[in-house]
């Protein structure tokens, strides 16, 4: 107890391609360090091509060329074992996948085989980990579905007979049936309608509190982070630029990028003019020198163009990578 479940240190993962003699290097994850405690929901926010999906791929050790890990480490402390994700062999990874570490993905329809009943998905994924004879295993699955307020009859349905929201609920049940220590959730509600999204988020929240698992929850939707996560990390152009308690980040963002992101959120009942951010997200094959946000940053100086600010603690549990952070605001 007390030990973090996941420790990521100085992780660097680049996409390297060479075609027709032209070498290209895309620095999708550059020097990212973070820790995730037991029983917490850690949110990861950032726009497209900010490296958040690459980061969770590296965390899950789902690394395929052209993606390469150039440095750093990813270490999990599961209940029953400690695993260095990039230092173990495949068999070892197979043993922890789904049992200790599971996933909830964006396109739930892609996880479920369209020509087989849902029951087979549970058997394929979880049977060997639960290690009980088939009738007992199915009883465990039914009980788990009931706990998630799903009718056990869904086991006999084909994926196309269920709505998108139901399918996503089934994949959440699938991801949690082995009571994993750690769940990776990659944009699980992005494709859903608002009404369904809310109930799916409530389900994730409920099952997390019950199992005491940790979740890394990736989405670009800041409103989802505000409602679900305990702590929040903001990524920009392959780097983590700010991290802190979700409430603190929303109340008083310190990195200029985060501050803009939060100020520009549209809110119901608010029609005050909002400003867009000038410029475009950088190309990670040729990132800007120094701080990668400096060409768009209202607070940038020459120093920002020369060197990148390291992540530094401004307050307990609140880290920011900026030389000139926004002034602190009191509540």
């Amino acid at each position: 107890m007390g030990e973090p479940v996941l420790v990521v240190s100085d992780l660097r993962a680049y996409y390297r391609t060479s075609a027709f003699g032209i070498e290209r290097e895309v620095r999708a994850v550059d020097d990212v360090s973070l820790t995730i405690e037991a029983n917490e929901i850690y949110g990861l926010a950032g726009e497209s091509s900010s490296g958040k999906t690459t980061l969770i791929k590296t965390i899950a050790a789902a690394i395929q060329p052209p993606l390469e890990v150039l440095g750093g480490s990813v270490v999990f402390n599961f209940r029953d074992r400690r695993v260095d994700m990039h230092g173990v062999d495949r068999q070892h990874l197979d043993a922890i996948r789904w049992k200790n570490l599971s996933y909830i993905m964006q396109g739930s329809m892609n996880v479920l085989n369209p020509v087989r009943r849902i029951r087979h998905a549970f058997v394929d994924f979880a049977f060997r980990h639960i290690g009980k004879p088939m009738p007992l295993f199915l009883a465990v699955v039914r009980e788990h579905l009931e706990r998630l307020h799903l009718a056990p009859e869904v086991l006999d349905a084909f994926p196309h007979q269920l709505s998108g929201g139901m399918r996503q609920r089934v994949t959440i049940a699938l991801a949690t049936v082995c009571r994993p220590d750690f769940i990776i959730a990659d944009e699980p509600t992005t494709a859903l309608d608002v009404v369904v999204q809310k109930s799916v988020l409530a389900m994730i929240h409920e099952i997390q509190r019950e199992l005491g698992s940790s979740i890394i929850f990736v989405t670009h939707d800041m409103a989802v982070h505000a409602n679900l996560t305990d702590r929040l990390g903001i990524m920009y152009a392959g780097r983590l630029v700010e991290e802190g308690r979700t409430a603190d980040i929303f109340r008083a963002p310190r990195h200029p990028y985060t501050a803009h992101l939060i100020a520009s959120l549209p809110r119901l009942g608010d029609s005050a003019p909002k400003k867009g951010l000038d410029g475009a997200p950088p190309n990670l094959a040729e990132p800007p020198s120094g701080c990668r946000f400096h060409p768009r940053c209202p607070r940038a100086t020459e120093r920002c163009a020369r060197e990148a600010a390291p992540m530094a603690s401004l307050a307990p549990g609140h880290r920011v990578a900026c030389f000139y952070p926004e002034p602190e605001r009191s509540a």
């Binding site: 608002v194 009404v195 505000a226 409602n227 679900l228 409430a247 929303f250 109340r251 959120l265 119901l268």
Partner: peptide
């Protein structure tokens, strides 16, 4: 009601 408020002080999901 289903619109999530971008404000951690007024959570609707938890």
């Amino acid at each position: 009601q289903s619109v999530l408020s971008p404000d951690p002080q007024h959570r609707t999901v938890g």
